[in-house]
């Protein structure tokens, strides 16, 4: 990756990327052979969106303690994914986001995806997974107040985020396998993957039920004790 030293160029890039470069790529996508470029363009878009998010975090003052806690939670969720039958990444991401804030939630989700894929297999799907889990964390952090107030709401969020995650990744599956994206093909991909999203959403629910107390209460305690 190139190191951009000049502050000026970095600022220009930060504005140009979302408002000029990304729309330009989509609009200029050659019309004659669109299907060839679908996979590439969607991959590039995801990567750029991810880079923008991450570049934003570099500027924000996260605090050393919070940074370390993000790395701790990431390691815990990856450790969970390595155990047989366990898929607690979503649950741990949501819980971290609730107590450590939206930025930390995004980071825990996105980093868990990369790190666990070192074990489960890295692939072109990694950026999509990063974005999907990152967004689950981000939104959990934004709605932290109501989620902390009501367990029922938290469980509901777990179910919805499980379904949302599968739906987001189905977009990738469609683009990748068919080289194009139509509503019918997307529907086919969603239907053909059908038992899994439901199982995944239910497993999220179970993990949230199991972990809400041990992890949530401990994070709340750390937050209170050290005043994060």
């Amino acid at each position: 990756m190139l190191v951009i030293k000049s502050e000026k160029i970095r600022r220009i890039l930060r504005i140009a990327l979302p408002f000029a470069i990304m729309p330009a790529i989509v609009l200029l996508m050659p019309k004659r052979a669109q299907s060839q470029y679908y996979a590439l363009v969607s991959f590039a878009m995801t990567l750029m969106a991810l880079l923008l998010f991450l570049a934003g975090f570099e500027r924000r003052e996260l605090g050393t303690r919070r940074m370390i806690l993000v790395s701790v939670m990431t390691a815990l969720s990856v450790l969970g994914r390595m155990l047989p039958l366990m898929k607690p990444i979503t649950a741990i991401t949501v819980l971290s986001a609730m107590y450590l804030g939206p930025e930390s939630g995004f980071l825990v989700g996105a980093l868990s995806a990369v790190l666990s894929n070192f074990i489960m297999g890295q692939g072109p799907w990694t950026p999509f997974q990063m974005l999907a889990w990152g967004l689950i964390g981000l939104f959990a952090g934004l709605f932290a107040k109501p989620l902390r107030g009501s367990r029922l709401l938290l469980y509901g969020y777990g179910l919805i985020s499980g379904l949302g995650y599968s739906m987001l990744l189905d977009i990738w599956t469609t683009v990748w396998t068919y080289g194009e994206f139509t509503a019918a093909q997307y529907l086919a991909a969603v239907v053909s993957s059908m038992p899994y999203p439901v199982i995944y959403a239910l497993s999220n629910l179970i993990f949230l039920m199991l972990l809400a107390k041990p992890i949530g209460d401990k994070l709340a305690r750390i937050e209170k004790k050290y005043g994060l």
Partner: peptide, 11 residues
């Protein structure tokens, strides 16, 4: 590291 030292450290 070139892109984001903070993230690299967390990772």
């Amino acid at each position: 590291r070139g892109f984001s030292p903070k993230l690299a450290l967390i990772f």
